[in-house]
Design a protein around this nucleic acid. Structure first.
Length: 381
DNA sequence: TTCGATT
């Protein structure tokens, strides 16, 4: 959660029949910008739905609970919601393979009054770092699956309201969000739109992908969203670098370990190390324009990765140098092969700097890596 | 193939 404001109050539903749940969906991919047909796509085929029934007929007992803490179990979910009233059934949705929680679940009460009470009482409740969302679940149906879109390249000035205005011509929007930088609050230019029905999402892709919103100078990308469980597998991978490292032994790991020790010693003795973020002991917000700094840490660009490179290789290479919060291998949309580069975010400037100094020019397999702080370069002008 | 973004 970006802020700790009164989400609980502002987000409380005033008319619950219109509060529609957001179901997280499976990963699926959409088309790229390279449309083979460049004529205007027909978005108004006669698919006007007879299914206006929507929320009125929906269950008054079944709730969807979103944004649950990662470690919350089904038993804890049942315990929490059982405090309101008798539960008919309760299900925490988990990853099919890893069994990890996907962060949402369903609670079906016996009495509709208890369901309403649970929304009023538990929606917006803070649990650890999360603010849970409790709302009526829509009937399970194929037509509402895979209706979640990921939008990137948005103008930084675009508001959530404007985003909704842009997409609402294609259907009924269930949820929308624009991601913002945690420090500056400025839009990251990416967001989500969940439609009521998949067909609406498909039409929005056809109509808006690679199009410039009114007043924008760059086209946006609109595609189906990934499901949100993969951070978990990344976190699991991050533990790889803690274990004895058989893949990258030798001088490099030793150098990394010695650096960490030096750093600890310096901290213990109060030695101040250089960081562009620190000016006379005062952290300056002017630092947001320093190359590589991404608000949440120091962003590092890694070039010349092999096509089969994956995230674990980045964790293993950078982890020994200090706190790594995120790694990303950039892949080709169609082949899913690495496009030759990736990004690593490190918390501390010093550790990032040493990692760069150590890993730039490092030979990985038959390739020589180029490693530097991320800049704002882009190959398309 | 030289700088993304996944609630």
């Amino acid at each position: 959660m970006p802020t700790s404001t009164d989400f609980r109050q502002v987000n409380r539903p005033s008319h619950s029949s219109q509060v529609i749940a957001a179901m997280e969906t499976q990963l699926s991919n959409g088309p790229t910008c390279n449309n083979t047909s460049n004529g205007p796509s027909t978005i108004s085929n006669n698919c006007s739905s007879p299914v206006e029934s929507g929320s009125i007929e929906d269950s008054k007992t079944n709730l969807i609970v979103n944004y649950l803490p990662q470690n919350m179990t089904q038993e804890e979910l049942k315990s929490l919601f059982g405090s309101i009233g008798e539960i008919e059934s309760c299900k925490l949705v988990r990853d099919k393979i890893t069994g990890q929680s996907l962060g949402y679940g369903f609670v079906n009460y016996v009495d509709p009054k208890d369901a309403e009470k649970a929304i009023n009482t538990l929606n917006g409740l803070r649990l650890q770092t999360k603010t849970i969302k409790v709302s009526y679940a829509r009937p399970s149906s194929a037509s509402i699956r895979d209706a979640n879109l990921y939008v990137s390249g948005l103008p930084k000035t675009m508001t959530q309201k404007e985003l909704e205005q842009l997409f609402s011509q294609y259907g009924r929007i269930i949820t929308s969000r624009i991601l913002v930088d945690q420090v500056t609050g400025v839009s990251r230019g990416v967001g989500f739109i969940r439609f009521d029905r998949r067909i609406e999402a498909e039409e929005a892709i056809k109509g808006l992908n690679c199009q410039k919103p009114p007043g924008a100078t760059e086209p946006i990308t609109v595609k189906f969203a990934n499901n949100p469980s993969q951070k978990t597998s990344q976190a699991l991978l991050s533990q790889l670098y803690q274990s004895p490292n058989r893949r990258y032994p030798g001088p490099l790991a030793q150098q990394a370990q010695r650096f960490r020790l030096d750093n600890l010693l310096n901290m213990a003795y109060g030695v101040k190390r250089f960081s562009p973020m620190a000016i006379d002991g005062v952290t300056s917000l002017a630092g947001i324009n320093i190359p590589g700094h991404a608000g949440t840490g120091w962003c590092i660009f890694v070039y010349n990765l092999a096509p089969d490179a994956d995230e674990s290789i980045l964790w293993q290479m950078f982890g020994p140098f200090g706190a790594v919060t995120n790694v990303k291998v950039i892949r080709d949309f169609n082949t899913n092969k690495c496009k030759g580069f990736g990004f690593v975010t490190m918390t501390n400037y010093d550790e990032a700097a040493v990692a760069i100094a150590s890993l730039n020019g490092y030979r990985l397999g038959d390739r020589v890596l180029q490693v530097s702080f991320k800049t704002n370069k882009t190959h398309k002008a």
